[in-house]
Simulated scan of single mutants.
Amino acid sequence: MKQNFTVRQGALDGVEVFLGVAEHRSFRKAAAALGVTPSAVSQTVRALEARIGTALFMRTTRSVGLTEAGERFLARAKPAFEELVAASEVARNLGQRPSGLLRLSVPRAVVSVLLEPLVASFCEACPEVEVEIAASEELIDVAAEGFDAGIRLGQLIAADMVAVPLTPPFRFIVVGSPIYFARRDPPERPDDLRGHACLRLRRSSGALALWSLVDHGRPVEIAVSGPLIANDFVTTLGAAMRGVGLAQVPEPIAAKALATGDLVQVLEPYAPTAPGMFLYYPSRRQMLPKLRAFVDHVKRRAAAADTPRGHAD
């Protein structure tokens, strides 16, 4: 025997209108944004308040504000509604080929050694996706600034982001050129750095970065001094190659110069290890096909790099 049941109707009725009024703090402005009349907005909000059983807005002739109940409703309704909208967009794009503009925020140092080959292979695999690279050392909110994803050192990524490894862990090494060491003896211990010209990095916060080393397993931070301050590793690396001073940089970006002899590594036993570079993106955001395709491409390349030759499936 079929069981009788009732489906609750209208659970989301009026939520979009409520969010519009809450955003604009105005029934008239919300109506204009939604393309309806102020009267329709007012009636919809009254119906929502009647269904919930409490007032959501405080109205005067001059302003519109949220009640305590309205504030609580907004805090939970807004992210839930945004998830529903995003879910609808993902469902609508299901089965479509990835396309559109993929915007990435990255540090300058990774562009040539890491990102260029990755992007080249991705563009070949997904020709309908345009990739825009914004190279900057500034730590930004990728979602707020309109980026799909970013690339940063693992320790700099916020805990609420999804992070996908791009490189294995690597060391931060101290390097100098033969030109520089023709004038100065190489440092043998971290304390020796105080007598050397050291190229410094200014963080996006405005603070000067300390040099981080490891002495017998113990982290050591040293305030160095020198003739040049820059805001990216590419600049400090170039200055070190010209003999301006010593630089502390990620080992991968110095590898070529070390191989050619343009740079020499010093204080090798004291070099700390960083977790590596990661692709990251907001964890609570629905992923569009263009970003999903890029993340999958990154994972496939990482898996291929980890597979020993002769053992591929």
Rank of each mutant, 00 (worst) to 15 (best):
K2Y: 11
F147Y: 15
P38M: 02
C198V: 12
V15L: 14
R76D: 06
G176L: 07
E116M: 09
I140V: 14
D192T: 03
T44Q: 14
L193Y: 07
A31M: 02
S205H: 04
N93I: 00
A134L: 13
P289A: 00
R189I: 07
T44E: 13
L84S: 09
D215A: 08
A255D: 10
A32F: 12
V214S: 11
S88Q: 13
S26V: 01
A144S: 12
W211A: 03
P219V: 01
A207S: 06
F170L: 10
H216D: 08
I140S: 11
V106Q: 03
F294N: 01
V295M: 03
V7H: 15
N231L: 06
P38C: 04
E23Y: 02
V142R: 03
D148R: 14
L208M: 09
G53I: 01
A134E: 13
V234A: 12
Q9M: 13
V113E: 14
A304N: 05
R200I: 00
G226K: 05
E16C: 09
T61E: 11
A255R: 15
A31G: 01
A163D: 07
V298D: 02
A77H: 06
L153Q: 13
T236V: 10
R194W: 14
N93W: 09
A159H: 15
P186L: 12
R97L: 01
L34C: 03
A303M: 03
F5V: 08
F122G: 02
S63Q: 12
K78C: 00
R301C: 04
F57R: 04
R309P: 00
K78P: 00
A120E: 15
V90T: 12
R194K: 13
R8C: 08
P168I: 05
P269F: 10
A271L: 07
K299A: 05
L237E: 01
L228P: 00
A40F: 04
V234P: 02
P269C: 10
F73L: 07
A257T: 01
G150D: 02
V175L: 14
Q286Y: 11
I52R: 12
L291T: 04
T61D: 09
Y180M: 08
